[in-house]
Design a protein around this nucleic acid. Structure first.
Length: 427
RNA sequence: GGACAGGUGGCCGAGUGGUUGAAGGCGUCGGUCUCGAAAACCGAUAUACCGGCAACGGUAUCGAGGGUUCGAAUCCCUCCCUGUCCGCCA
């Protein structure tokens, strides 16, 4: 959500920043609505002031036993005009809100301009893709080769029977691998990086989805329940909204939260993409990191958070690269995003496994999350950040493909062996 | 799901139609006192928006949204949430 004052102050700069994202100029329309709404508001408030003043006078006159008929007639005439102005002020305000709510965040100056993922910029890479003496398999070939029949460790067929396409059933050591990965990630983020573990609701209301920017624009990407709630597409939604409608003391910042939750996505626009395997599912689990920070510190926090996500891959020995997303590939609420892409030997390519975004005050304005500074008066909007630390399903894919052996078995990464009850090889 | 009781400022809590943004207390901040601290005393202490260069003025907000009224924290309706009891249940 954008600050009307900032659009008023420099409409050209606002439109220019939006144009970097390929969004057509909107400031003229917004400012026109804003002007009309403020005019209605000012007139309304003047009338209300008059009404309040006269009403008080009625009360005082009554107290003194003086006649009040003339005053009452005057207030009655004000009332009709108030009703009309209230309607037009509200309608103008609603239109304005609707327009504003659909405008994406402005890109940070350091976000490169570009059309799509081809214009993303390589920031750094870590690890060397292993040179294998055999032709590596893709994760689903490996997974489906483990176990047989109803004992299959990675079972897409029975998942389809239970729920349809884009679901997976994991069993035995692969089911445990999912749990091991999640526990390993949570231990790292809580034990070494200062995040507090949270178990949030996986179902949230409209307001919560609005706060982080999923609504109103992206309703079609979400699952909605019959009682009007939404299945979270990411734990970013409940974690970030923990601070909604709050004024936080500066001394209590930064807030750093992590949660392991299922995530649900329609994948409406992804027909035909990643149809095999568990890269793109309607349900997947993810360990998410969220930070709520003082506005002056969000850039540093963004770098820090990205390193926290990278640390997971480093300890698992999985090669990756960090990409700075261009304006055209960035999400609705972000002003700057790093994607971490892990090397998948079976696919012979890097695939996204984490996305770390600085949303600036964009979400804070939608949520009404402010901070009270130690010094000085008033409040400021906080900055919010979120990042995957990491997508658990995709991390499993990466482990399978990078640790595969020629016989189709999977070596367990050293860091995970304790979490696997000492198991060193999945076969 | 049923019955009852509630939802007031950072917290506790008063307030059942009139000059109440809201008594009182606690907390917090500033000051007096003190070598310093405690205590005591004095003062300050919500948010958003509108108008204004500013000083300042105004509007709204007592869970949310409607309604009644000249005027609503106070009366009516709907919804949400909390508590207690009952039912059910992982």
């Amino acid at each position: 959500m954008h600050d009307l004052k900032s659009i008023r102050d420099d409409a050209a700069a606002f439109d220019q920043a939006l144009s970097r994202r390929g969004v057509a100029p909107v400031s003229a329309e917004i400012l026109d609505l804003d002007t009309k709404r403020r005019a209605a508001q000012t007139e309304l408030q003047e009338l209300l002031a008059l009404r309040n003043e006269r009403s008080k006078a009625i009360g005082m006159a009554r107290g003194k036993g003086l006649p009040v008929e003339a005053l009452m007639a005057e207030v009655a005439s004000i009332k009709d005009r108030v009703a009309g102005l209230e309607v037009s002020e509200r309608e103008l305000g609603d239109v304005l809100e609707t327009k504003l709510a659909a405008i994406p965040n402005l890109p940070d100056p350091s976000t490169p301009e570009g059309k799509d993922e081809h214009d993303n910029v390589l920031v750094r890479s870590w690890g060397e893709p292993a040179k294998l003496s055999f032709t590596p398999k893709q994760h689903f070939e490996l997974g489906e080769g483990l176990g047989q029949g109803v004992g299959s460790l990675m079972d897409f067929g029975r998942a389809a029977k239970l729920a349809g396409a884009r679901f997976t059933v994991l069993k035995g050591p692969l089911a445990r691998l999912e749990r091991a990965l999640a526990a390993f990630m949570l231990d790292l983020h809580t034990g070494e990086f200062g995040y507090t573990e949270v178990v949030p609701p996986a179902l949230v209301n409209d307001q919560t989805m609005f706060g982080t920017g999923q609504l109103p624009k992206f309703a079609d990407d979400q699952f909605k329940t019959t009682d009007g709630r939404w299945l979270i597409p990411t734990a970013e939604v409940p974690l970030t909204n923990l601070t909604a409608d709050e004024i936080i003391e500066e001394k209590d910042l930064p807030l750093r939260w992590t949660a392991y939750t299922p995530c649900f996505r329609m994948e409406a626009g992804a027909a035909g993409r990643d149809t095999r395997g568990m890269i793109r599912q309607h349900q997947f689990s993810k360990v998410e990191m969220v930070s709520v920070v003082h506005p002056d510190l969000s850039e540093a926090e963004h770098e820090r958070m990205t390193h926290c996500a990278e640390a997971v891959l480093q300890r698992l020995g999985l090669p990756y690269r960090v990409m700075l997303l261009c304006t055209g590939d960035m999400g609705f609420g972000a002003r700057k995003t790093y994607d971490i892409e892990v090397w998948l030997p079976g696919q012979g390519t890097y695939r996204e496994i984490s996305s770390c975004s600085n949303c600036g005050e964009f979400q804070a304005r939608r949520m009404k999350t402010r901070l009270r500074p130690k010094e000085g008066k008033g409040t400021r909007f906080v900055h919010t950040l979120n990042g995957s630390g990491l997508a658990v399903g995709r991390t499993m894919v990466a482990v399978l493909e990078n640790y595969q052996q020629e016989d189709g078995s999977i070596r367990v990464p050293d860091a995970l062996i304790p979490y696997m009850g000492g198991l060193e090889r999945i076969r």
